[in-house]
Design a protein around this nucleic acid. Sequence first.
DNA 1: CTGTTAGCGCGTTCAA
DNA 2: TTGAACGCGCTAACAG
Lengths: 334, 334
Amino acid sequence: MSDQARKRRLTSVDVAREAGVSRATVSYVLNDTPNQRIPEATRRRVWDAVDRLGYAPSAAARSLRSGRSEVVLALLPDWPFGRMVGAMLEQLAVALADVGLIFVAHPRAGSRRPVAEIWKAISPAAVLTWDPIEPADQAAMRAAGVKVTVGLFQRGDAGGLAVSEQRTGRLQAEHLAARGHRRLGYAFPDDERVLVFAEPRLAGVRSACAELGLDPPDVRTVRIDRPSAVAAVRQWTAGPDPVTAVCAYNDEVAVAVLGGAREVGVSIPTDLAVIGVDDLPLSAIVDPALTTVATDSGGLAAYLAAAVIAGLADEPAPRYPGSDIVELIVRDSA
Amino acid sequence: MSDQARKRRLTSVDVAREAGVSRATVSYVLNDTPNQRIPEATRRRVWDAVDRLGYAPSAAARSLRSGRSEVVLALLPDWPFGRMVGAMLEQLAVALADVGLIFVAHPRAGSRRPVAEIWKAISPAAVLTWDPIEPADQAAMRAAGVKVTVGLFQRGDAGGLAVSEQRTGRLQAEHLAARGHRRLGYAFPDDERVLVFAEPRLAGVRSACAELGLDPPDVRTVRIDRPSAVAAVRQWTAGPDPVTAVCAYNDEVAVAVLGGAREVGVSIPTDLAVIGVDDLPLSAIVDPALTTVATDSGGLAAYLAAAVIAGLADEPAPRYPGSDIVELIVRDSA
DNA sequence: CTGTTAGCGCGTTCAA
DNA sequence: TTGAACGCGCTAACAG
């Protein structure tokens, strides 16, 4: 390895020298700049030099000059994300790549360092968050050149993802009501970090119950273990007016309830119907197969991509696909 | 909103003017530069101006000047990543944050656009990949200022993650052998994208079988659905010399096998023992609870962080924690 | 038509 | 505490 390789970064000066042209010409060739007629022979010389040297322009210099970045940054929240989020992020990356944007995600937003540290280090064109963005952060980002900021969960229960999460809960309750259940239980997760999801889902169940004239749901916290599930099932099924169907926060909690019911000797779905959320791969093969509510991660990704792209073009954001991205999947458990 | 707010980015010039000092002073105050005696009063004036204006330095200019980036980029491969990877990325982000590095991940590396597009847009200090890095890419990255590149799966079966994946397979087979099983089956996944994991795991099972004097494993592909699992279980348990224990590629496949066995009337673990990989939250609560091999995502994250940090300091990479990050978890299924 | 010169963008840092 | 140069690529204006 030549000593220059470790000493100095390769710049367009090196390419220009190697190709026997000026830096400007190099830039024109590399960017295929319109309105610059450069003969094929020169182009080839430049590209050859680039390949030979292994030159790559500095992203820093480029974005300093152009004043814009091609990067979209997602600040992932603290909750444990599984398949669905993973899939959604993949699809988002693809959708953004189609318009020339690079998508990256930072896990564990706000854990140790303030969020500002992160977007400052990346200087993205747009930032996506799950938690709502503080007005102060909002302003700082704007000042630093971040054009678009999308908060999936808006403050209050009004907008954003809360809509489809509520819809998810409604779908659970409506399905159970349609099957004739009058007393519903709700299996709430034992993890503070997922409250952003759990609360709107439960709110959806509550409002559906109210509208359909059912009793309010009997909410119990269920951990992903046997004893917890057993206890919850016992409580739901005891007494003179037992719960006959349970909406679970997600499929994992639902499977825990299934296990608890088996242990208690409560048969599913005859004695107790169970419905989950997420449609995990496993949900179709547990016994009995789990009825659940799936979110169309592709649809969500498409919306987010559209929102970012619109924002970058200073156009109004697209309509939020509140309810049409969740879907009921009926199997055997409810 | 003032018209300047939308016209021009806020720069250190604005802060300098507002505070009545020079740009140099602003820089010294903001970075707390050593060997620069700046009176407390001046510092305060500068910080006040920063807060009032909502100033944030341009990452592009900063890294252009300093020639180094604080960003570590992971290029996630194409396979569907679940909880374990999610958790590992989180822990990696935290470990790197502790030394002032920002971790971001790009999902779906190399899907549409060449990988080069991605690191060029970010200009990270280090890049992490799962697939091995092409020598050409390697060189280009070095030239563009990426100091460290870590490929988790090295070419060939020699190094990197393949070590612990093989160890995972060995652990499965050794446990089953210790329980007296002589004929093992292997439930192989039906997804090309996870071959990087599946192959070393199976290789581990194979070599353990060979060393322990068992027959080679009876490998069958199992999809995450009932019919596929039923067929596999039938084949394993039929004939004069049936398989008595199955190593599954992961817990999902293992649960599928559990379901298939139930349907066929094969009892677990008496007629057929099953052991998975991953220790999903669900694995502890399915019936019977799944014996499995867990990977210590924290340990892996710690190793990766150490490798990156060492590389950035031009120090030799730490020893790879081949086998000590996988652990057998014995439950009821084997 | 082909290609060059020169200066910008913004934070950092040396010399004064 | 400051003026000025620097890092690197882009591009308007200009010359051969």
